[in-house]
Design a protein around this nucleic acid. Structure first.
Length: 904
DNA sequence: CCGCAGACGTA
DNA sequence: CGTACGTCTGCGGT
């Protein structure tokens, strides 16, 4: 078990400066951080991050201050070591490692992976033994060594080449233990420190010392006798009480010395060259920082990237690009001189109506750019710009083409020929990310900071007017978009997702732009009346509620409601939440079933009608001057591939209750159009489940044309389809849909109001009959765990690193996401394809109707006069043929003067 | 003025 | 102890 010391100088070091190896005892430093920092350091999902945060902070400081050329982190592995075998009491009596710490160790590994920093562990070997071995090899190879460890045993390694950094307070303050420092503090040179420690004992290792002998006495003995061996051999020469004690504890001292000697001959697979710092995986740094919700820490980390730009010399967008001063009328020639993809940046307002473009910047691959203020374009340049923008054959790269389209539309300009959208591309690569700000992407993928360098000496009031006027920022954005496209195109290709951008998301963004621009007509008078009606309902419910309890409270305040329910009315406690006990609708209904208290009825009614009122108020606020409501569909939000709808959200307009459906009647066919059509997929997620699982039973259920839940119910309960009762059907329906979400027996029992046992029995019976579904569901999680991602029918990936988390809650959450993502995401793929097909056919037939809304499995269309039949057929055909599954895709279509009546 | 928590609407 | 979203309100911080 010996490793020969290497004497060659490690690669990657220039002559003249000595290479410097940083060695960190990962476990001891992280553990210190864990206790030094509050457990309120956590992600919003509840993962405590104090240890990983503190550890990362310490590491960052070391990389910054010590400038190592090489580094390694060692971790303890296994409870049993040669020390515990030699001395079972070693480290006995230690409190068990808290789960909250244990769960952070893999997170620390993730951070280290992102930094391309090697970490080592060996079964039965402690971290410090690994460090001692590496330190020996490194100093033999002529390196300086820094050891960061909270274990004092490391002090024995200190010499002229090796310095120990020992934490004094938390992990932020490290004492620099050189030979002089060790001798100054303990009175013995480093090599004799273990002699001293053997006499004094080490409480944290459960190694008792000699009673009454402290560091002072021990140091005196070691110095006087020249070492521990000599001292023990001549123990009888030591006088007094202390001498007696020493003679009583000779064995213990020998044991201590044996145990505190660090191994220097551990077998290590890596050579010193392998420990060279090569630079961070910056993308992984971002990913980890996202996951751990690092704010400042992300920047601190990136600032110490050994491969990053030296601090203070970070390139800005402005130095990368030259803004050409083109003479009036010269734009056409400038554009004509540049073939290939040009980067385009449009600044202005990007609302679906009333958008406006203020500045347009175009950057070429030659490092030149032009920036135009749309207000003072000469008529010739105006024409040239409009022509270029609308030219399908003039290839462009844009960050967020849909928004640019809206802005340009405000100037009457069309935008065509967009070949690449960096925002969509970044989303396809990392669909779980929070946002896709161009500046963030530039930093992450190009290592470039966007923006005009601010003059450092000037005060904050000295605005960068010059930079703004010359359009450097816009030019930099346009150039960055162009550069980013190259990188992201490669990344997309790596994931096999290039076609998703070019064939799905990019063409879809144009369809979405038209939908948003069209908007849906709203009956404002009707909405206004409805608002009054609901407002009266709110007042009535509130008055009735106050009457019951004899006082006025804010019924919208869960906090005040808790007082009323659990203090004043002394009702039984509901489910526990962070702030006490829940007052959600399910809990209130449960309380009502048990207490029949009238307050609950009024409260529930108040909730319902308040919600409806605010929904109506919100809608009224968003009606545009054209009398229509223009939502914005976000294409890069949902990690599964779905769209989302904002301002207002038209994907959550009530439909389940009668009162809610009244709101749907406010969405009407607009003037000049004949009717609204809705077309929706029936049971698309279950059909995808049938397809993906290949389950024979489920597939024949869909092929038979029988009611799905009745069919499944007949199989599960083993009765004839006609004997499936409504109760049986409801249970099976809940279970079928729950499966796609990772529903547990407990969850199913809660939803159906049955026992967990009954729910489990139901699930067992289901899987007994539909084994293919079970196999598929377990397989999809296994595969995702192996690959790190799930994929939809079109290859849209979702990455789920938490599948291998050793935090059970996070892991199980990731497992449910893995179950759901392929199903929900494939449904999203299919309706996106359908929307493209619908659009293509409508264009081909030159129809005047228009698609207005998408609600995940439904499209809402405004039908131009005379087009109703053809549109109905077109929708059925295109939606039904969007993707060929092993089961038919069924589409139902309805028509009416408003959204409610168009439903079927 | 901002962010969080709770509640709740949709697929 | 069921996925994916967006919005509103109250509340406690700034």
């Amino acid at each position: 078990m010996t490793t020969e010391a290497r004497t060659d100088l490690p690669a990657g070091t220039s002559a003249g400066t000595r290479p410097r190896l940083l060695l960190v005892d990962g476990h001891s430093m992280a553990y210190r951080a864990f206790f030094a920092l509050p457990d309120t350091l956590a992600t919003t999902s509840g993962q405590v991050t104090n240890a990983v945060f503190g550890f990362t902070s310490m590491l960052t400081n070391l990389l910054r201050d010590e400038q190592p050329t090489h580094a390694a982190v060692a971790f303890d592995a296994g409870r049993v070591t040669f020390r515990t075998e030699r001395y079972p009491e070693y480290k006995a009596g230690r409190a068990a490692t808290p789960d909250e710490f244990r769960s952070q160790v893999p997170l620390i590994h993730e951070v280290l992976d992102a930094l391309h920093l090697r970490y080592l562990s060996a079964e039965g070997i402690e971290a410090d033994d690994i460090l001692a071995t590496l330190a020996g090899q490194a100093s033999a190879a002529g390196m300086d060594v820094l050891i960061c460890s909270g274990d004092r045993d490391a002090l024995q390694l200190v010499n002229d080449d090796v310095t120990v950094l020992y934490p004094v307070k938390g992990v932020s303050e490290l004492a620099r233990m050189t030979p002089d420092a060790v001798e100054g503090k303990y009175g013995v040179p480093p090599r004799q420190y273990p002699d001293l420690a053997a006499l004094v004992g080490e409480k944290s290792d459960n190694l008792p010392g000699i009673p009454g002998v402290g560091p002072k006495t021990a140091a005196k003995w070691v110095t006087t006798f020249g070492g521990l061996d000599e001292l023990l051999a001549r123990a009888d020469e030591v006088k007094g009480k202390a001498g007696e004690k020493l003679r009583d504890h000779l064995e213990q001292v020998r044991t201590n010395r044996e145990l505190n000697a660090l191994l220097t001959d551990v077998t290590i697979d890596l050579g010193l060259d392998d420990l060279a710092l090569t630079g961070f995986d910056r993308e992984a740094v971002h990913r980890v920082s996202d996951a751990l919700q690092f704010g400042q820490m992300r920047d601190r980390l990136l600032a110490v990237d050994p491969a990053g730009e030296p601090a203070g010399e970070q390139p800005t967008g402005s130095v990368e690009i030259e803004v050409d001063d083109v003479a009036p009328g010269g734009l056409a020639a400038w554009l004509a001189a540049r073939t290939g993809r040009l980067g385009l940046d449009v600044s202005g307002t990007t609302t679906p109506v009333g958008g406006d473009a203020w500045k347009v910047a175009v950057a070429g691959p030659d490092g030149h750019a032009v920036v135009y203020d749309t207000e003072d374009l000469g008529s010739e340049d105006d024409k040239a710009l409009a022509a270029w923008l609308a030219d399908e054959a003039a290839p462009k790269v844009v960050h967020g083409a849909k928004a640019a389209w809206h802005a340009l539309a405000g100037r009457g300009w069309d935008l065509r020929g967009v070949e690449f959208d960096t925002e969509l591309a970044a989303y396809l690569c990392h669909p779980d990310q929070r946002g896709y700000d161009l500046g963030d992407l530039a930093e992450r993928h190009l290592g470039r900071r966007l923006g005009v360098a601010a003059p450092a000496a000037q005060g904050a009031l000295d605005l960068d007017l010059d930079g703004g006027a010359t359009g450097e920022l816009e030019a930099a954005r346009a150039a960055t978009v162009g550069d980013l496209a190259e990188i992201l195109a490669g990344e997309l290709a790596d994931r096999g997702a290039a076609h998703l951008l070019s064939d799905v998301e990019l063409p879809l963004s144009r369809v979405l732009a038209s939908m948003e621009h069209a908007g849906i007509a709203a009956d404002v008078d009707y909405l206004t009346d409805l608002e009054k009606h609901f407002a009266a309902g709110v007042a009535d419910a509130a008055a009735a509620a106050y009457d019951v309890i004899g006082r006025e409270v804010n019924l919208g305040s869960p906090k005040q409601l808790q007082e009323v329910l659990f203090d004043q009315l002394a009702m039984p406690k509901t489910k526990k939440i962070k702030t006490g006990w829940t007052t959600d609708a399910a809990a209130l209904q449960d309380l009502f079933a048990r207490t029949q208290h009238p307050f609950l009825e009024h409260l529930l009614a108040h909730r319902d009608v308040t919600r409806l009122r605010t929904t109506v108020e919100g809608l009224l606020r968003t009606v545009a001057p054209d009398g229509r409501i223009h939502t914005t569909f976000y294409q890069t939000i949902a990690a599964t591939g779905r769209l989302s709808s904002v301002d207002p959200n038209l994907q959550n307009i009530p439909v389940r209750t009668e009162a809610g459906r009244r709101i749907r009647r406010a969405f009407v066919v607009g003037p000049g159009y004949e009717t609204l059509l809705t077309a929706d997929y029936s049971q698309i997620e279950m059909r995808i489940m049938a397809h993906l699982s290949g389950d024979e039973g489920l597939i024949s259920a869909f092929r038979s044309g029988e009611d799905l839940h009745r069919y499944v119910g007949s199989r599960v309960f083993q009765v004839n389809p006609e004997d499936v009762t409504p109760e049986m059907r409801a249970k099976v329906k809940a279970m079928s849909y729950g499966l796609a979400y990772g529903l547990s027996a407990f969850g199913l029992s809660q939803q159906l109001g049955i026992s967990t046992g009954e729910a489990q029995g139901l699930m067992d019976d289901y899987f007994e009959r539909f084994g293919g579904v079970r196999d598929y569901l377990t397989g999809v999680v296994e595969e995702a765990r192996a690959t790190g991602w799930t994929a939809t029918l079109l290859g849209r990936r979702r990455y789920l690193p938490d599948l291998t988390s050793d935090n059970r809650q996070r892991r199980q959450m990731a497992e449910r996401m893995a179950l759901n993502a392929p199903i929900q995401g494939s449904a999203a793929d299919i309706i996106k394809l359908a929307m493209l097909g619908v659009r293509r056919e409508m264009d081909a037939q030159r129809l005047e109707s228009r698609v207005l809304l998408q609600v995940h499995d439904e499209l809402v269309v405004e039908v131009a006069p005379g087009e109703r039949a053809v549109m109905e057929e077109l929708l059925r055909a295109q939606m039904g043929a969007a993707f060929e599954l092993d089961v038919p895709l069924e589409v139902s279509v309805g028509a009416g003067q408003n959204w409610h009546d168009a439903a079927h």
